[in-house]
Design a protein around this nucleic acid. Structure first.
Lengths: 321, 321
DNA sequence: CTGTTAGCGCCTTCAC
DNA sequence: GTGAAGGCGCTAACAG
């Protein structure tokens, strides 16, 4: 593989000149420039990114740590982040922690050594104060003072979800939400539910629980054995909403006539999944854009706001009347 | 950030000694070794991977190019590859081509410059002869003489799928499959279907078509407008099978009593959001393991077989009688 | 066993 | 506008 030295030799110039011609920094006479470019093409020269990295002390890589790529919210977020990063010239290393805190720790260490330029970190766990030598941005999670995050207007939209169920006639409204160790904005979802119930003097029928992806069905079953009277259910994710639909079906409860369901995320449409859920739809492309923008600013040393909110909206599907 | 030089100075030794102590290559007296490790810890030293990369001319990174991370087959494949790669000390850079051949081309170039150590390439397109300076491994696709691939026993299992539909009483059996520009083992799925029909002297009702992920429903609709008499349908993917189930529902055709469906991939169970499909289940974890194994061998210069087959099995769900 | 040195490939001063 | 030289951090080869 040809190096810049080979190119310089072939063009009969010094390496410095070749470097300037090829990288475009510094002034070069037009004539020598074309001679050098010509030689480069002839030799099939491609700059060695590794050497550049060493010189610049940066890799052009960003790592994203997610619990699992199976969950469509994380998968979508990762996809859009990858695109946004690609557009601004970064590569993305993806790491699945399998929702395991120990793996997350070791991956953080590995990633530091790998000398990525930044990290997008989505976790369910509290890691204490993170090594802040590297810019870290998160989604929904409060990872520490030095880690800004992007989130949606969770509280407001969750209220809207309850309002919708109420308007559609549900009077026994319950809620199922995932729980995390780390402080997360997603908690606003059940907090809003509680407030909405208290405002209406309705009993709170809430199951919040830490569970791993894949266990949605059993979480929902647990909920129904606690609160079988439910006729309106707000869930903290579409995966839970979908599970609720199928558990209801199994139990002979018809949706939406006997049970109405509103989810959160707005991610399942693309999978051709049915029924179409009524859900709070987050603007994931825009959230990813904001994540990358925050990260880029942090990577170039600029100050950033600690919190960026992207408004969600509500879409009505077949799980409400 | 501390360098090995700092550590050496702090421990009162030469850099070579420090390097040997820290990397574990070469012999070191126990005493100086602990002194160096001590100094390293004290200074918070972490080896600079970039410099190592330059020295060793490798990055420890593998790139995976997939059409989209939304499709659960690719997402699963990527996930398992990431895990296998992580286990053998590689990082994975993920690149979504968005099923766009031009993007794939530019990404291949970018990835070459990035100096990854290998590529896992899953495409729907024919790229001609690929630059073979880098090990490339694929799944199902024939990318060229120098690109081994991992696949399942497509032909055999597709015959089994048709047999099952026949046994269960279907007599008007059709088939919907995706089509690719690149030579792909997935073609065995509809080739087996054709052979099975001809063997039984049944008419071939086949729609094979190049389409992008997300268009499954309309492909299925097109099929049904061509062959409404179908009572048994074999599809080249679970996404198509799921779409077929829902299109049938919309049209008032009941599954499985009026229409039986067998899919391919075995990927949708984890999503808990569909009728359980009868399907040919590929062993994706094992396929990923083989992919990584092939790639590792190629990266270390060993010879590899051009084709590795991982046997699939058949699982009966709710879409057959 | 240990210190010194020469690069890996590139970029960036610094003289000319 | 151009060439030579130094150095990014590390490892490996060579003396001692």
């Amino acid at each position: 593989m040809a190096t810049i030295k080979d190119v310089a030799k072939a063009a009969g110039v010094g390496v410095g000149t070749a470097s300037r011609a090829l990288s475009g920094n510094g002034s070069i006479s037009q004539e020598t420039k074309v001679r050098i470019e010509d030689a480069a093409k002839r030799l099939g020269y491609a700059p060695n990114q590794i050497a550049r990295n060493l010189k610049k002390q940066s890799t052009g890589c960003v790592a994203i740590i997610i619990p699992t790529i199976f969950h469509p919210f994380f998968a979508k977020m990762a996809l859009y982040c990858e695109q946004e990063l690609y557009n601004v010239g970064y590569r993305m290393i993806v790491v699945n922690s399998q929702d395991d805190i120990e793996k997350e720790k070791s991956m953080l260490k590995m990633i530091h050594q790998q000398r990525v330029d930044g990290i997008i970190f989505i976790t369910h766990y509290d890691h204490g104060e993170l090594d802040s030598s590297l810019p870290i941005v998160s989604v929904d999670r409060h990872l520490g003072a030095s880690c800004p995050y992007v989130t949606s207007n969770n509280y407001e939209m969750s209220l809207k979800a309850i309002d919708l169920l109420w308007e559609k006639g549900a009077r026994n409204i319950g809620c199922v939400c995932g729980e995390t160790t780390v402080e997360s904005e997603t908690r606003q979802r059940y907090l809003a539910y509680i407030d909405a119930m208290e405002k209406r003097n309705c009993p709170v029928m809430l199951l919040k629980k830490q569970f791993k992806h894949g266990q949605e069905m059993s979480v929902i079953s647990e909920y129904f054995s606690m609160y079988p009277q439910t006729d309106g259910l707000f869930t903290g994710s579409d995966m839970l909403a979908s599970a609720a639909y199928h558990v209801a079906n199994q139990r002979g409860i018809s949706v939406p006539s006997q049970l109405q369901i509103v989810g959160y995320d707005g991610i399942l449409d693309a999978w051709e999944s049915h029924p179409r859920l009524t859900t709070i739809r987050q603007n994931i492309p825009l959230m990813a854009k904001q994540v990358v923008e925050l990260l880029c600013k942090r990577m170039s040393g600029q100050a950033v706001p600690p919190r960026v909110e992207v408004r969600a909206d509500i879409v009505e599907g077949e799980t409400t009347k």
